[in-house]
Amino acid sequence: MQFYNQNLHSRLLLGTAGYPSPDILIQAIHASETEIITVSLRREGVGGSEFRQLIAKTKKRFLPNTAGCHTVKEAVTTAQMAREVFETNWIKLEIIGHADTLQPDPFATVEAARILSKEGFEVFPYTTEDLIVGEKLLEAGCQLLMPWGAPIGSGQGLRNIEGLKTMRQYFKNIPLIIDAGIGAPSQAIQAMEIGFDAILLNTAIAKSKNPILMADAFNKAILAGRIAYKAGLMEKRNMAYASTPAYGLADLSL
């Protein structure tokens, strides 16, 4: 699997907010076997360097994000600052339309994606399952899309599974990462089974009772879901279909 020409093995991207301590976060990162961790910059600013140095010891690739931004200008400025701080062109573009629902603002996201792509950023846009917004983001320069499963932190899983399946079929060769809303490993498996390329997670692991164990659970679930997708799921039937042959059994109706 490749994101912007980078070869990757793990299909789990991990958020770094809200853990009980940096120590537990670092252990969870290792347990998850992720290769990409996403880190915010908007609130912490330059003063957050001690925290960033701690998690840099994991040697994972940083995907800085624009969490907390509500306008194009804020997001672009945060991305530019992130490029300097993290020395990467990668940016997870997240522009929030409403502080309570944390829905992405698709208009601002497309506009910011265009500006950032022109400036040489490799943009990971947080979006919905809307196909036209997805097309506009690709046209603006994004090479992958990150649709939500459900609102950020809600843990509801895939709220519009039919819409997400359509998106998967529509953008056949574009990497699609489910970003936000996954609350349980079973939901992550479901997303992987229908062919999504990867999952980005934070709250479900950070706020569990034991984040390190939960990171392990998600790692294995995502792996299982991917293998199941490759193996090809059976179709559902309306009737039972016995898997053992009936030939030779006594016919009780005689």
Binding site: R43, E44, G45, V46, G47, G48, S49, E50, F51
Partner: peptide, 13 residues
């Protein structure tokens, strides 16, 4: 709770 060593005055947010 902000992961930062910035001790400047309280933010508007």
């Amino acid at each position: 709770m902000v992961e930062s060593n910035d001790d400047s005055p309280i933010s508007a947010r």
